[in-house]
Nucleic acid binder design. Structure first.
Length: 586
DNA sequence: GCCGTTTTCGGCCCGACTGTTTTCAGTCG
């Protein structure tokens, strides 16, 4: 783990323990800010410390700098050590239980000897909780329920699971009588790789009817909250869904507020304040110093109807939802971001020759139905035994079959290629004379995914610098929530890729999303070419493309920097001479 | 703990909802 991420984890634990111990909420918040800063910091924090420039970083002050220096010198933070001696670490696991906040957890620990989830369960069962003040039967039942739920489910859901759920919900609720608008917001709208809760916003003639339709659905396991304008439920699929019904005239303000991110909202509120205004989910209002919310006093907003109105009133460029994250300067406009429709080529797909489910003809047909002009056949190489990887003889026969298929599909540019294993030492799974016979080479790591960062960097650099490799497929090999994959020096990779004209892939499979968003940001800055591929093994996998595009958008990618957006002739020119596009971007 | 065109102290986003209370603390997003 890099020192930045290691330190971020320490500050995260520090913030949680401080919170439970009853520390000032603003101090806790300041430490949470440090976590975010460290996670999105491009520079190595040890180098900043050595240069004495830590305090120049926004969010890092004197106190934090002292802690970072202590960590670099001794491997620990004294304040954290002290809190860990004082408080059981198992209490942190209680923060993830819905309805339990730091104040309650502190009380449970002090007054009922609760130290972790197991002892909380015991304390509920033996009646200790009921003896505490403000612990009625309902509160205890809710805690018990949440505890069950937390133990059964992962805390975040992959976007590939959440998106279809949200889509079905929005379709169904949109059909309820009187619903004028409905959409999802939150991390799903921002295209995050995992989703906590699904947030749905709506405008309805009779909000009560929509709330009723929502909370009485068959797939609702439990209604958590149901008021006049908002409701929260837990679905039997294991996700929480929040619905908010709002007036039409503040739709933009609501969308903005519930799309987040939280950090982006805080920045926008700060901006509003500095301009003598206040921003909430009902609109942007002049700030008259009265603490009663302006919308409750009949004060007209400066802007509220659309997100564009609000950004304009704040004199800021309209920000794409995928770019509303911390670490992105709100005053700088993005280049127009890549869209799904910009992509005309799928450059990484499998057939029945290895572990795919489609024939060559079926693959072409699937691409054609998505409006593609180019499809690459890239089956696995010989070492991927588990995926029925192709021997040299089978590969050459397969290439021949692809060439023959071209006559049957004159409307499609059909590329004969391979997804070639990158061995642990950086060598490739076929000899160069074989690779030279292919139209396209996607080189990917599949095994030895736990090697140390230095070896992983050298391994991937060798593949990037190989003159016959066009694309590095799923560069880290990570699987979201299952394995972390390689942890190479991404700056070194993107620099090398940019100078060689090799593209790094965003694998659109929602379990991979590899490159991840923050790596895309680095790649975009370095001017490195990006490929967005679905790695299709079935027809349905072609529909993963939007997840890859969202990840690309989160990294700030424009179509011009993505090889899948090239017209067929330009794409063929790059494949013939990848150096021709080296350094052409950014 | 951090920050600063109201700057070295005093503020830090803010509204909805619940449960346990008789006016509000705690949680959530």
């Amino acid at each position: 783990m890099s020192i930045n991420r290691e330190l971020a984890a320490h500050f995260d634990m520090l913030a949680s323990l401080m919170e439970i111990s009853g520390a000032n909420a603003f101090k806790v918040n300041a430490n949470r800010t440090v976590v975010r800063v460290l996670e999105s910091l491009d520079d190595d924090v040890a180098q900043l410390a050595a240069a004495g420039t830590l305090e120049k970083v926004d969010g890092i002050g004197k106190g934090t700098a002292t802690k970072i220096h202590a960590f670099i010198e001794t491997g620990s933070i004294p304040e954290l050590d002290a809190l860990q001696l004082e408080l059981p670490e198992g209490l942190i696991g209680l923060l993830d239980i819905s309805g339990l906040g730091p104040k309650t957890i502190g009380r449970l620990w002090r007054d009922a000897d609760v130290v972790d989830r197991a002892s909380l369960r015991t304390a509920i069962e033996d009646g200790r909780l009921a003896s505490l003040p403000r612990m009625g039967a309902k509160t205890i039942a809710n805690i018990s329920d949440s505890l069950d739920f937390a133990e059964q489910s992962a805390d975040r859901t992959p976007i590939g699971v959440a998106h279809p759920l949200a889509s079905a919900l929005v379709d169904a609720l949109g059909a309820v009588a009187g619903v004028q608008r409905i959409m999802w917001a939150g991390s799903l709208r921002r295209g995050c790789e995992t989703i906590g809760d699904i947030d749905i916003l709506a405008v309805a003639d009779t909000p009560a009817d929509l709330i009723e339709a929502f909370t009485s659905r068959d797939d609702v396991l439990k209604v958590l909250v149901a008021g006049d304008t908002k409701a929260s439920v837990r679905l039997d699929a294991g996700m929480q869904v929040d619905l908010r019904v709002v007036p039409d005239d503040c739709w933009g303000a609501t969308c903005m507020y519930f799309t987040g991110s939280k950090e982006h909202n805080i920045e926008l509120r700060g901006r509003a304040q500095s301009m003598g205004m206040r921003l909430n989910e009902y609109g942007l209002f002049p700030d008259d110093g009265d603490s009663t919310p302006p919308q409750d006093r009949g004060i007209a907003p400066v802007a509220a109807a659309t997100e564009a109105d609000i950004y304009a009133a704040l004199e800021l460029p309209l920000r794409d939802p995928a770019r509303r994250e911390s670490g992105i300067d709100i005053t700088t406009a993005d280049a127009p971001l890549i869209q799904v429709d910009d992509i005309g080529a799928e450059l990484h797909a499998h057939t029945t020759a290895s572990d795919g489910h489609l024939s060559i003809d079926e693959l072409v047909d699937a691409a054609r139905r998505r409006g593609m002009h180019t499809i690459a056949v890239t089956d696995h190489s010989v070492s991927s035994v588990q995926a029925n990887g192709l021997s040299v003889d089978r590969l050459l026969a397969h290439v021949q079959a692809v060439h023959e298929a071209r006559d049957r599909h004159p409307d499609m540019t059909l590329l004969a290629g391979s997804e070639v294993d990158i061995h642990a030492d950086g060598s490739l799974d076929y000899d160069d004379d074989i690779l030279a016979q292919l139209d396209i080479v996607v080189a990917s790591p599949h095994a030895s995914l736990k090697q140390d960062p230095a070896k992983a960097t050298a391994r991937l650099l060798a593949a990037i610098e190989h003159p016959l490799v066009h694309i590095i497929g799923h560069p880290t090999g990570r699987m979201i929530g299952r394995r972390p994959g390689l942890d190479p020096d991404m700056q070194a990779l993107v620099q090398a890729a940019a100078s060689c004209g090799t593209a790094l892939e965003i694998n659109a499979n929602p379990r991979r999303l590899d490159l991840r968003d923050r790596d895309v940001r680095h790649a975009v800055a370095a001017g490195c070419l990006i490929a967005i591929d679905t790695d299709a093994h079935t027809d349905a996998h072609f529909d993963f493309l939007p997840y890859g595009v969202l990840t690309a958008q989160r990294g700030g990618l424009a179509a011009a920097q993505c090889v899948n957006c090239l017209p067929a002739d330009a794409l063929l020119a790059w494949l013939a001479d990848k150096a021709s596009l080296a350094g052409a971007c950014g």
